[in-house]
């Protein structure tokens, strides 16, 4: 897992909670673009003309959802894609996933730290910020690109839909790993 992709649990600690905290403002839809992510090239020989598959998904695991909400637009072989890029196969658009973020840490220090040190006698619910996952069907775009390319890059353009002042609205898309999954007829 690369440093850039490492989730930061409850990353932005707002201000010390205690009496005298100032009021937290209303959530907004930021206008400043968030940082896009582009993978290293990955072989798509598995999707080439000699390989049959019925459909293909891109699965993203370990997604942090502690802060802003966003649409993650997935583009293949289009590292320059941004929020204004048309969502069409011609531009490498494969699909979107949607993260409903918690909006940052509204609690005291440590409130949003995921507790990973639990034993067999701890029957409490798991922490609500255990990372989530997403699946994006990429069949058509992948099939199209695999006709002419042996490798593709994956670009995720996060378009933030909701955030509070407690959120990092630049480094939005944080995950642990991703993989293509293809299924045969």
């Amino acid at each position: 897992m690369g440093k850039a992709s490492r989730p930061r649990r409850g990353a932005k600690r707002a201000r010390p909670a205690a009496s005298g905290r100032r009021t937290i403002g209303a959530p907004t839809r930021p206008t400043t673009p968030a940082k896009t992510y582009t993978s290293k090239p990955v072989s798509v020989e598995f999707a080439g003309p000699s390989h049959r598959f019925q459909w293909a998904d891109l699965e993203i695991l370990g997604i942090d959802h502690s802060e802003a909400s966003y649409e993650g637009r997935v583009f293949l072989n289009n590292p320059k894609a941004d929020a204004k890029t048309p969502r069409t196969i011609d531009h490498g658009y494969a699909g979107s996933f949607y993260i409903f973020g918690h909006g940052g840490c509204f609690g005291d220090v440590g409130h949003c730290e995921v507790n990973g040190h639990r034993d067999a006698y701890d029957f409490r619910d798991s922490h609500p910020l255990v990372p989530t996952r997403a699946r994006v069907p990429v069949t058509d775009t992948l099939r199209q690109l695999a006709k002419t390319s042996s490798e593709v890059t994956i670009t995720v353009v996060p378009v933030v839909t909701g955030a509070t002042e407690l959120c990092n609205t630049t480094d939005v898309f944080r995950f642990e790993r991703m993989r293509f999954l293809t299924y045969n007829p």
């Binding site: 209303a26 959530p27 907004t28 839809r29 802003a68 909400s69 966003y70 649409e71 979107s96 996933f97 949607y98 993260i99 409903f100 973020g101 918690h102 909006g103 940052g104 509204f106 996952r133 997403a134 699946r135 839909t161 909701g162 955030a163 509070t164």
Partner: peptide, 25 residues
């Protein structure tokens, strides 16, 4: 997972404002 991720989450984000974050939606 599809109902939550592809429809539910999307409409929360589409509505924006307070609906846009879990804490106050």
């Amino acid at each position: 997972l599809a109902l939550e991720g592809q429809l539910h989450n999307r409409v929360h984000g589409w509505t924006g404002g307070h609906m846009g974050v879990v804490a106050v939606a």
